[in-house]
Computed example of a mutant assay.
Amino acid sequence: NATPESFKSENDEAQKRASEMQLWWDEAIARKMNIPDGYHNVAVLLVKWADNLDELGTREETEELRDIFKYQFHYETQIVELNVASKPQHQLNRHLSAFVEKHDGPHNLMIVYYTGHGIYREDGKYLQLSAYVNIFFSPISCGLVKEACANWNKAEEVLRDDEVEGDVLTILDTCFSSNLAKSGREDVRTYELLSACGFDSITEGPGENSFTRALIDALKELLEKYKDGSFTTFHLNQQILLNPARRSTPSQLWYRLRHHERHIRLAPLQPAQNRLRKPSLPRPPRGYLTLRFALRDDTLNQQQIEFLTQKLSDAFKNKALVGLHRIDWLGIKPARSTHFGRAALALYACAQWKKFLNKRRQEKKE
C-alpha cells in the first residue's frame, strides 16, 4: 500500500526528472537556435535590519551570502538595511521599487533575500517582517520606539506587477515564510519563493543550523558540482534538504506566479563582454503558441531532447517569417487514462489472451 512517505519520494523523483529535462532542453535549444542561454543579467538585493535593531544578528551570514553571489556567481549585489528613522514599510517599498526599476528586463533575473524575524498575521493574511519579536521593544533603547516592522505582501506587489518582465526569486529566511504560497496567480514569467520553513513553522536563527548557512553551503556544493553549468532552484532546494541540520525544518520551494512548471536556473555569469557576443533577442514577445505533443512515454531522455530540439530548430530556420524568439520547455505531464480507455485496454488484453489460448489448443490438436 502507498504511504505518505512513498508518495513524497515518488513526487520528489518526478520533480527531479522534470528539472533535469528542463535543463537539457534549455541548453540544447539555445545551442541549436543560436540564442542566449540563461539570463543576461542577474541582480541580488539582500534585505536586513540595521545592526542596532537586528535582534538576531544577521550581518555575518548576510555578507557571506552576498560574497557568494558577487564573487562566485558574478551577480550584481546590494545589501540594504531597514531602520526606524522613517517607516520601515516605506523604506522596503522604496528599495524594492528602485531595485526593479534598475534591474528589470525580459532576459534578467532579480533575486530578493530577506533575513530577520517574521510572523504571519492571520487577521490581515499577510507576512509581517520585524526586527525583533516584540515589535514595540528595542533591545538597544530599552523603550518604546516606532514599530520596526513591515508588511511583506504589500512590498512584494512591485515584484508581482504585470509590468515586470524579468524572472524573480525571493528567498525568505524567516518564520512562517511559506504561508505566502497561497496567493499565486498566472503569468508567463517565472516567480519562485524559496522559504526557510513550511506552513505555520518557525526556523532557526543565524548559526550552524540556520537556513542561510545551509543555503550558502548548498550554493558552494552546486557550484563545485556543475562548475560553469546551470542548476535549477529545485536542485538548490534539494541540496539544502540534504543538510542534516535542516532535517527538522525543511525548506520549501513555491511558485508565486503559477502558469507552468519551469524552475529558475542559476549559473555563474560570464564577463559582460562575453554575454554580448550572441545576438540579443528583440523586443518581448506579444504572443505564445501552445502545441501539445502526444508522446509514447511520460519522460524524455537527453538524447531524445537533443533530437527534438534539433528538428524543431531546423523547422524554424526562417525565424523571421513567424517572428520566433525561442521555444521554452514548460513541462511534460502524464496523459490521463479515462475509464473508457482503461476498459478498452482490458478488452484488448482479454482478446489477446483468448487468441493466445486458442492458438495453444490448436497446436496441441496438431
Rank of each mutant, 00 (worst) to 15 (best):
residue 4 P to H: 02
residue 6 S to V: 08
residue 6 S to Y: 03
residue 8 K to H: 11
residue 8 K to L: 09
residue 9 S to I: 04
residue 10 E to C: 02
residue 18 A to K: 08
residue 24 W to T: 02
residue 31 R to H: 07
residue 32 K to T: 14
residue 41 N to D: 15
residue 42 V to Y: 04
residue 44 V to T: 06
residue 46 L to Y: 07
residue 47 V to W: 05
residue 48 K to Q: 12
residue 48 K to G: 14
residue 48 K to D: 11
residue 51 D to W: 05
residue 55 E to Q: 15
residue 59 R to A: 09
residue 69 F to V: 14
residue 76 E to V: 12
residue 80 V to E: 08
residue 82 L to T: 05
residue 84 V to Y: 07
residue 84 V to I: 15
residue 88 P to E: 03
residue 98 A to M: 05
residue 98 A to G: 07
residue 101 E to Q: 13
residue 101 E to K: 11
residue 102 K to G: 05
residue 105 G to S: 09
residue 107 H to D: 08
residue 109 L to Y: 14
residue 110 M to Y: 01
residue 123 D to V: 08
residue 123 D to F: 05
residue 123 D to K: 06
residue 125 K to G: 00
residue 130 S to K: 04
residue 132 Y to E: 12
residue 139 P to K: 13
residue 141 S to G: 06
residue 141 S to W: 11
residue 143 G to T: 11
residue 145 V to S: 13
residue 153 N to Q: 01
residue 157 E to H: 12
residue 159 L to E: 02
residue 160 R to F: 09
residue 161 D to R: 05
residue 162 D to V: 05
residue 163 E to P: 01
residue 165 E to V: 03
residue 166 G to T: 02
residue 169 L to D: 02
residue 170 T to F: 05
residue 175 C to I: 02
residue 178 S to E: 03
residue 183 S to Y: 09
residue 184 G to W: 08
residue 188 V to I: 06
residue 190 T to C: 04
residue 192 E to P: 06
residue 193 L to E: 01
residue 194 L to I: 14
residue 194 L to E: 08
residue 195 S to N: 00
residue 200 D to N: 12
residue 206 P to F: 01
residue 206 P to S: 00
residue 207 G to I: 06
residue 208 E to D: 12
residue 210 S to K: 13
residue 212 T to N: 01
residue 216 I to F: 00
residue 219 L to T: 00
residue 222 L to C: 05
residue 223 L to Q: 08
residue 227 K to F: 04
residue 240 I to F: 04
residue 242 L to Y: 02
residue 242 L to I: 01
residue 242 L to Q: 04
residue 246 R to V: 03
residue 247 R to D: 00
residue 249 T to A: 05
residue 249 T to P: 00
residue 251 S to C: 10
residue 252 Q to P: 00
residue 253 L to A: 01
residue 256 R to C: 15
residue 258 R to G: 05
residue 260 H to C: 04
residue 263 H to D: 13
residue 263 H to S: 13
residue 264 I to L: 15
residue 264 I to P: 09
residue 266 L to G: 13
residue 268 P to S: 13
residue 273 Q to M: 06
residue 273 Q to W: 09
residue 275 R to N: 08
residue 276 L to W: 11
residue 278 K to Q: 14
residue 278 K to M: 11
residue 280 S to Q: 15
residue 281 L to P: 05
residue 282 P to K: 10
residue 286 R to P: 04
residue 288 Y to E: 12
residue 288 Y to G: 07
residue 291 L to F: 11
residue 294 A to T: 12
residue 295 L to R: 15
residue 297 D to Q: 06
residue 298 D to Q: 05
residue 298 D to G: 00
residue 299 T to R: 14
residue 299 T to P: 01
residue 301 N to L: 11
residue 310 Q to I: 06
residue 313 S to V: 07
residue 313 S to N: 12
residue 314 D to A: 13
residue 315 A to S: 15
residue 318 N to A: 15
residue 324 L to G: 06
residue 327 I to W: 13
residue 328 D to E: 14
residue 328 D to Q: 06
residue 334 P to W: 11
residue 335 A to N: 07
residue 337 S to H: 07
residue 338 T to A: 06
residue 340 F to S: 08
residue 340 F to E: 09
residue 341 G to F: 10
residue 342 R to E: 12
residue 353 W to P: 02
residue 354 K to N: 13
residue 356 F to W: 10
residue 357 L to Q: 05
residue 359 K to L: 06
